[in-house]
């Protein structure tokens, strides 16, 4: 008893949520990546206070659910008059920026561990060789350490991006109109469960397969010498 007309209606209702889902994901992943690199560098800096702060940050954000972080930012912060009077309020009053902030802070914590793993995986010999060739500082990072670390961290980071696509669904809890929120709205107004679910699931799978494919292509491009290992089809692995 598949109702094609209703499926199509679901699709029409849910599709407008895709830009919000994608925009939220892209923005929080990219800003979160910068933040993740800073955190990873702090962890590796061997400066005790920096290391400690970064460690505590990662511990707290990985040890608590994203939903509670999002609610804290959206409802928790808004209860303080001094926040509502601050220059941040124009941003914090918007559900989009609250959701972004929560997602970004969260992915930065997970991402920093991936980046740190990537940086630690750079063979010492290569760094020594580059130094012997006269490279140092930024050049060394840009030419040698950065690319190798990126290549090694990419599979795990690809996973993190997919997890972020899924995590954007929580933004519906703070009134943002994205794919899951629209699906839930269909369920609560038409009282029909399966069609809305199926349509939303197909949309998420399409987004995630596309992203997994993109990551796989970038991975191949970055590592011409490692091609044989990477010939396997793109796979969504576990990172968390």
């Amino acid at each position: 008893m598949i109702d094609a007309a209703f499926l199509l209606e679901c699709f029409r209702t849910i599709l407008p949520g895709v830009p919000t889902t994608l925009g939220l994901m892209a923005l929080s992943v990219s800003v979160g990546f910068v933040f993740a690199v800073l955190l990873a560098l702090a962890r590796l800096s061997a400066i005790p206070p920096l290391d400690l702060v970064a460690r505590a940050y990662v511990f707290v954000f990985r040890g608590t659910p994203l939903a509670i972080q999002m609610f804290l930012i959206y409802f928790g912060l808004a209860q303080f008059p001094w926040i509502r009077a601050s220059i941040l309020w124009p941003y914090l009053r918007e559900p989009f920026w609250c959701a972004f902030l929560a997602l970004m802070l969260n992915t930065a914590a997970y991402g920093s561990e991936i980046v740190r793993g990537g940086l630690l995986s750079v063979p010492h010999g290569q760094v020594e060789a580059a130094r012997a060739a006269g490279m140092s500082g930024l050049l060394l990072f840009r030419r040698i350490v950065g690319p190798i670390a990126l290549r090694n961290a990419l599979p795990a980071y690809g996973n993190e991006i997919i997890l972020m696509v899924k995590a954007t669904s929580l933004a519906s809890m703070v009134t943002l109109v994205e794919v899951t929120g629209l699906a839930a709205r269909i369920i609560s107004t038409t009282y029909r469960v399966f069609e809305a679910f199926a349509v939303a699931a197909v949309i998420y799978l399409a987004i995630n397969f596309t992203l997994a494919g993109l990551v796989w292509v970038v991975e191949r491009r970055l590592s011409p010498d490692h091609r044989p290992e990477l010939d396997a089809a793109p796979d969504m692995r576990l990172v968390h």
């Binding site: 409802f75 808004a78 509502r84 009053r93 559900p95």
Partner: peptide, 18 residues
């Protein structure tokens, strides 16, 4: 038009100025 899961939540956002 923002849709909330409960009226309590829209009351809070009204008072907060959202």
């Amino acid at each position: 038009i923002r849709e909330y899961r409960t009226t309590e939540e829209h009351d809070l956002d009204l008072a907060a100025g959202r």
